[in-house]
């Protein structure tokens, strides 16, 4: 028998030492997971979309990430910890997908089909810009890329990104700046410049 003996005092001490709300019933955990389900899938989806650029695949990845989160939810009670874990998981799953054979070509084909923009004349140039930006993003080191993608998600400022990635805010700022600089240089070298500004705005 390799159980642990605890007397009443020890149990009280153990329960008291746990974070508030760490010990609750399974029903309570279910309710908490439902709350996460209400506000976190979009985050996972957008992270995946930023990597995969295909809504169907991004949704699959977000599903997988949330399912994994469900399996590990007893360890992910804290909201920030949950989001950080979810972002990393969605990121990794997306990269795994993209590394699979043939994914890249399918993604590029799908990118052309998706999100038809208003205004026929702008479509081709907008797609060109998006392709260049996507290619430039792919060329970024991972640590710059994830910071750049998260910072671009609506509602995520430097502080939020720092929390999610468990990085100092200064590090996040410098990485975002570096990533933007790389992307701008990549666009400039690709010939994308002010000539496209009107076209880019047409997609808004």
């Amino acid at each position: 028998m390799t159980g642990v003996w605890l007397n009443g005092t020890e149990m009280d001490a153990l329960a008291a030492s746990l974070p508030r709300g760490a010990v609750t019933s399974g029903e309570s955990l279910e309710r908490e997971f439902e709350r996460r389900l209400a506000d976190c899938p979009t985050l996972a989806y957008r992270v995946a979309l930023g990597v995969l650029r295909n809504s169907t695949e991004a949704e699959d990845v977000a599903q997988d990430a949330m399912l994994r989160a469900y399996r590990n939810f007893h360890r992910l009670r804290d909201r920030e910890r949950f989001r950080a874990w979810l972002v990393r998981t969605a990121w990794r799953l997306s990269l795994d997908r993209i590394r699979a054979a043939g994914r890249r070509e399918r993604r590029e084909l799908a990118a052309v089909r998706e999100n038809p923009e208003p205004g026929v004349e702008g479509i081709a140039a907008t797609r060109e810009i998006e392709r260049h930006i996507a290619a430039a993003l792919d060329a970024l080191p991972e640590k710059l890329r994830i910071v750049m993608l998260l910072a671009a998600i609506e509602g995520y400022n430097t502080r939020e990104v720092a929390k999610v990635l468990d990085l100092p805010e200064g590090t996040v700022k410098s990485r975002v700046h570096l990533a933007r600089k790389h992307l701008a240089e990549a666009l400039r070298s690709a010939g994308i410049s002010v000539a496209h500004r009107g076209i880019s705005s047409a997609g808004e």
Partner: peptide, 20 residues
């Protein structure tokens, strides 16, 4: 400056959207 804006909008467009 406009190139910087294009970069920001481009990246934002890559991560915008909602799950179904």
């Amino acid at each position: 400056r406009e190139l910087g804006e294009i970069v920001d909008r481009g990246v934002e467009s890559l991560v915008s959207g909602e799950p179904s």
